[in-house]
Computed example of a mutant assay.
Amino acid sequence: MKLGYHLGYWSSGPPEGALEAITTAEDLGFDSVWTAEGYGSDALTPLAWWGASTSRITLGTNIVQLSARTPTATAMAAMTLDHLSGGRFVLGLGASGPQVVEGWYGQPYPKPLARTREYVEIIRRVVAREEPVRFDGDQYRLPLPGGTGLGKPLKSTVHPLRPRIPLYLAAEGPKNVALSAEICDGWLPLFFSPRSDGFYRAALEEGFARRGERPGDFEVAASVPVIVHDDVEEAASWIKPSLALYIGGMGARNMNFHHDVFARMGYADVADKVQDLYLSGRKEEATAAIPTSLVEDTSLIGPPEKIRDELAAWEESVVTTILVRGDAAMLRKVAAVLS
């Protein structure tokens, strides 16, 4: 089981101690470091800025949002970062949700799977640089029909360092998970639980079957809260507010993919109650409604011995990398327990 470091979203500004944490992760032998974007900081700029102080660790985005950039712009950024990092870049992509896609980017959200499939194919063509890029899809067309009539197929002026940059897909639903196995090099799960391993394993196998093969190097890099602490309940209390936000407030009542993850996990009643409380403005009650068992199903918390015992289930799952968060001191504690 490999370890990665996930910086997560910025709040009002850059996270304090980020560079120290990244260099500490590299010194500790972590395999990768990842950045995120929502509707504030972007994922690419911090990765280039802080990544310049590293020499070995893999640099990944978790995630670049599809609607934030055209496929060709994302491909340009990927090739640029791959060159600057000496071939250490991994492009993590995700469709996000309708509130961000339509509310922030002003783009239509329907048919996210079809849009993702076309987006990935265009990136592959740009990076391969075998010929000028032509694409006639339902979501994207290159060159653009109409307009001035002067658009023509183009080929990147930059020669890629690698003709195929690793591309991972963030996905929660079974169709998206299967798509990651079919067209990508890895899957970025959120709120993974070993108890749901069979469900996700089947979705991945469906995608591999459509692909016609199961790549030996397919990666599953899961974001997993890890808190080394003698008091399990106190450790859980630090995670519950974030879970309440995602289950209750990240999306609309009739379209919240995070809520659906926990419903499939067996917490449908809890997820419904948390959502009802959160959307009615009772956020503290929503947090209190989350049982510690739910936290333990998707996290590794408690004394070192407990975490080591529970790690076995993760090692037997489809997960190949655990992505953790925290400052440099927390990373040292986590590495001491999980390494």
Rank of each mutant, 00 (worst) to 15 (best):
G38Y: 02
A244V: 06
I239Q: 00
L190S: 12
E118F: 07
D276Y: 03
P174N: 00
A336D: 09
L161H: 14
W49G: 10
S156A: 10
A328L: 11
Y246T: 07
R332Q: 08
L7G: 00
T61D: 13
L84H: 03
S223Y: 14
L47I: 03
A313T: 05
D136G: 15
A21K: 11
T23R: 03
D230T: 07
S85D: 00
I22D: 05
G51Q: 09
L44K: 06
Y200T: 03
F89T: 00
Q275V: 07
P98D: 14
E172R: 15
R282N: 07
I227G: 08
T72M: 14
R129E: 05
L161D: 13
E131S: 15
G281I: 09
A178L: 09
A288V: 04
P215L: 10
P291N: 06
A75N: 14
L142M: 14
V270K: 10
G151Q: 15
K283C: 07
V274R: 05
I122R: 07
T116S: 05
R164G: 03
R125H: 05
P46H: 03
K111A: 13
Q275R: 08
R125F: 04
S55F: 11
P189V: 11
Y119C: 00
L113K: 04
L84G: 04
S242H: 11
Y5N: 03
S280V: 07
L142E: 11
T74I: 06
G207S: 12
A335H: 02
L47N: 01
A236L: 07
A170V: 08
G38T: 04
F191A: 08
A25G: 10
H83Q: 13
S293W: 11
L144E: 15
T24K: 11
I63N: 08
P194C: 01
P215I: 09
P163H: 15
G92D: 07
T74E: 06
G147A: 09
W314L: 04
G326D: 08
D138T: 10
L204G: 02
T45W: 05
T298L: 03
V270R: 09
V90M: 02
A77Q: 12
E20L: 12
A181R: 14
Y5W: 08
R253T: 10
E206K: 15
P143E: 13
A209V: 13
S237H: 03
F218K: 01
I307H: 01
G106D: 12
L331I: 09
P163Y: 12
Y278V: 09
M76T: 12
A209E: 15
P189D: 14
A244H: 06
P241C: 03
G251N: 08
P15W: 01
V127A: 04
W187Q: 11
A222G: 09
P194D: 00
D297V: 06
Q65K: 10
P189W: 10
P14T: 09
I322N: 03
D309F: 00
D31A: 05
R164L: 04
E37S: 00
V220I: 03
A95E: 01
V100A: 01
R253H: 05
E296W: 07
V90N: 02
W187N: 11
V100R: 00
R124P: 07
G60C: 07
T298P: 04
P166R: 01
G149K: 08
T70M: 03
R69N: 06
Y200A: 03
A329H: 11
E296T: 14
V324P: 08
D138I: 06
M330R: 15
R125L: 08
T148R: 12
T58P: 12
L179K: 12
Q65T: 05
I227E: 09
Y105A: 09
